[in-house]
């Protein structure tokens, strides 16, 4: 399958030519297939936010290319403008971008910019609100009257309403309560499933990355240092720790068990997996 979005030798330098010059991305080759769910992890300052802002053309590469369906997104101005609607980007703390009088109007900002008809806009707003679990009541309110979590949902709906083929989220659950986080992740999964959209999730939460993604990409110092299935990535516990990253807690528990002499598998990274492994019963934990 050919990737829906791809970067080739992507390099980004902030404040080029000043004393504050900073190489944020260094020859990154990153690609995502249609319908894939990829998590991007990496310590703070590793270049995750910089990378995703390249994917919808908000930043321009200092060298290298970004391709959407094989076409360079900087090849023409018209194509570049249309990319914003095909690759939806939800920023870190997106609730600070709300500005309209009502939540409904705010969510419709994207579709309005796409030049859709009023009936189409309305349909999309209700659909997007449905995905993130906003009620009709809430749609009529001022966005500033919603709770923190409600604002976050409204802001995410504002991007989903454009029905992007690639949905990128920068730490969407930061600062939400556990229940709210889980809920929101389920909403995003639903969008992923029903529209067969590719999702790129930037996160610091290893459990979340392990549970949601088919593939993990690890950034460090502006370079991709690991890339593969969660099993493969979390197998390198030492390498991850060197980059000041964790493995999921349950994986750590299992590696402890191994050290204590139990012959449990190493590649356990969700609680559900752990449960089924333990209930298999052949590890003899009960009579240890």
């Amino acid at each position: 399958m050919s990737p829906i979005i791809e970067t080739q030798k992507l390099t980004h330098i902030y404040s080029k030519g000043t004393p504050f010059e900073h190489l944020a991305l260094d020859g990154v080759d990153f690609s995502v297939d249609p319908g894939e769910f990829v998590a991007v992890i990496g310590q703070t300052g590793s270049g995750k936010s910089t990378l995703i802002q390249h994917l919808n053309g908000l930043l321009q590469p200092d060298s290298g290319k970004v391709l959407f369906n094989g076409q360079d997104i900087w090849s023409s101005k018209a194509f570049n403008n249309s990319i914003r609607f095909k690759v939806g980007l939800v920023f870190q703390y997106p609730e600070y971008q709300l500005f309209e009088e009502t939540v409904f109007k705010d969510i419709s900002f994207g579709p309005r910019n796409m030049g859709l008809s009023p009936s189409e806009i309305e349909e999309r707003v209700y659909e997007a609100a449905g995905f993130v679990g906003l009620t009709e009541d809430q749609l009529a309110k001022s966005p500033f009257d919603l709770s923190g979590g409600g604002k976050r949902r409204a802001a995410i709906a504002g991007v989903i309403a454009m029905r992007p083929e690639v949905l990128i989220l920068d730490e969407p659950t930061a600062g939400l309560d556990p229940m709210g986080s889980r809920n929101l992740m389920e909403n995003i999964r639903a969008y992923h499933r029903e529209n067969n959209a590719a999702v790129i999730l930037v996160t610091h939460n290893m459990e979340e990355a392990a549970r949601q993604a088919n593939r993990l990409t690890v950034l460090s110092g502006g370079k991709i240092v690991m890339d593969g299935t969660p099993e493969k990535v979390f197998d390198n516990m030492e390498a991850l720790e060197k980059m000041r990253l964790d493995t999921p807690e349950i994986t750590q528990v299992f590696s402890c068990l191994r050290r204590m002499g139990f012959d449990v598998p190493q590649s356990v990274y969700t609680v559900e997996q752990a449960k089924s492994v333990l209930l298999d019963g052949k590890w003899g934990l009960g009579n240890a």
């Binding site: 908000l58 403008n81 914003r84 939806g88 600070y96 971008q97 900002f109 994207g110 504002g158």
Partner: peptide, 16 residues
Amino acid sequence: EETDKIISAQKARGAD
């Protein structure tokens, strides 16, 4: 910095 961020966020929603 904040203005930059807001501009980027609105551009991501197609603001021109």
